[in-house]
Every structure is written in C-alpha cells, then in structure tokens.
Nucleic acid binder design. Sequence first.
DNA 1: ACTCAACAACTACACGTGTAAACTGCAAGC
DNA 2: GCTTGCAGTTTACACGTGTAGTTGTTGAGT
Lengths: 123, 123
Amino acid sequence: MKVSDSELKLLEVLWQQSPLTVGQVIQRVQINAKWHENTIKTLLMRLTKKQAVKRHKDGRRYFYQANVEKDTLLSEETQGFLAKFFGGRVSPFIAHFNKTNKLSSDEIKELEAILAKMKQEND
Amino acid sequence: MKVSDSELKLLEVLWQQSPLTVGQVIQRVQINAKWHENTIKTLLMRLTKKQAVKRHKDGRRYFYQANVEKDTLLSEETQGFLAKFFGGRVSPFIAHFNKTNKLSSDEIKELEAILAKMKQEND
DNA sequence: ACTCAACAACTACACGTGTAAACTGCAAGC
DNA sequence: GCTTGCAGTTTACACGTGTAGTTGTTGAGT
C-alpha cells in the first residue's frame, strides 16, 4: 500500500481513532496542518479509492476508517527505505546514523535494552 | 538535496567512481537497470540542474561527478524517514523492526558490536 | 570530403501529488 | 418554505518523475 506524505497524515488520525466523519477528520487534521477542508476531502477520496481507507454509510454521510494497519505500512516503508539506502540491512543504517547523528548515551542505553529483549525472545 | 529514486541510482554510480562521461555513466547504470540511454541523459541533466551533480567541459563533452556527498544525502534521508514514521527517534524504529522482521542472532550481534563501539567513542 | 557514432539540448507525455475551487444535494434552523 | 452549512463529488492546475523521442553538432575513422 503506497500512500503519499499528505495521505499519511490522515491515516495517522484514523489510526488514533475511528471511525470518523469527514468533519471529525478535518478537525483533527487541522490541529497540526493548516490545509483547506477540500484538500482533506480530496485526500480522503484518494485514500478510499486506493483502499487504504474504507467507509460505511450512515444516513447520507460516511464514517471513515483506516483499512491498512499501521504496522503493516511501517514495515513496508522500512523495508523500502533500507533497501534503497542501506542494502536492505539494518546495521549499516545504525552505523551510519551514529557516524553523523551521534546518539546520546541515553539512546544507546535504550537500544541496548531493546537488543537485550530481542536476544531473550530469540531463544 | 532532494533526488528522486532514479536519480539516486545515477548518484550511486558517480559516488563509486568519478568523473565520468555520459557514455561511461550509461554503461555502468545499465549493468543494473535497463533504461534507455536518453533516460539516463535526462536524469543527468536534471541532477545537474538541481546541482546534485556538477560537470566540467572537456572539449565538446562533459565529465560528470556527484556534487553531494553520500553521507550527507543519507543523513537527510534518514532524518526524513525517522521523522515521518517514528517521531524522529531511532529506537522506536528498531523496536518496530524487530517486531515484524525478526533480526537474526547474527544481526543482533552485529548491532551489539556497533553499540559497544559507540559507547567507547562516547566516552 | 563524407559518414556515423556519441554527445548536448530540447521537447513530449502520462501519472502521482499538493492544493484547492466549483457544483450538487439535503437536513436543520429560522 | 428559504437559507445556510456541511458532506459528497467533480474538475482544475502546476510541478516532479519516469521514460523516452527528436534535432543539431562534431570528432574520428574510411
């Protein structure tokens, strides 16, 4: 499921809470982005068309909800990103990240904790 | 510096070796991608226009070379990616990655090694 | 001198995306 | 009943991108 940057913002809203009407989506999106409501309607349309969002009728209006899971989309995007820039592997990514962005020692600790948990699960 | 997917492939070639003439670029790119040579020329043009590539004349032809460093571009893309999907932080990314993609124990070891090195450098 | 391959430069064209305006109901309030 | 506001739908339009075709130029080989 390929969604554009703007479309993603709408999905974020729908992942947080759903189903929502257009009006509710507009409200929530506009907290962070100053888009015209028609823009948001267009994006919702496009998402519906590409089946990233589904809707069901209630009287004369629809309730919208995400039709892709967040984790699914994150995985796809992550894979694409790693493939495109780091040969599909995660450790070159981390290595690069540290080279230029310098992780704080707190972040390093956090990563260590995550790794430790992974090792357990892997047993 | 924002470059498209296709343009990135050309940069990869130029990062490996440069300067190169159009013909040389075409040859190298075509090892991996079956693009028409005019496509490659167009992409080189666009890269030149957006100053991701620079060229210098030699007689009636040009030699091309990257004008962005690979590390710079990777950093930008990495930041963009993390911001877009993981609140700009790297550990949620790793956590997610493990949740769906399961790192092999070799990869976990590799990451541990990288972390260990980071800690040293951080001292 | 003529031809041809390689290069430069310009043009093309469809599709996705960002960003909306315009038009069409209808339901609720005045 | 007429107006207004919101939902839905359709249309618009510029810009980037993928993917080339066309035209003009020239150095090198015959």
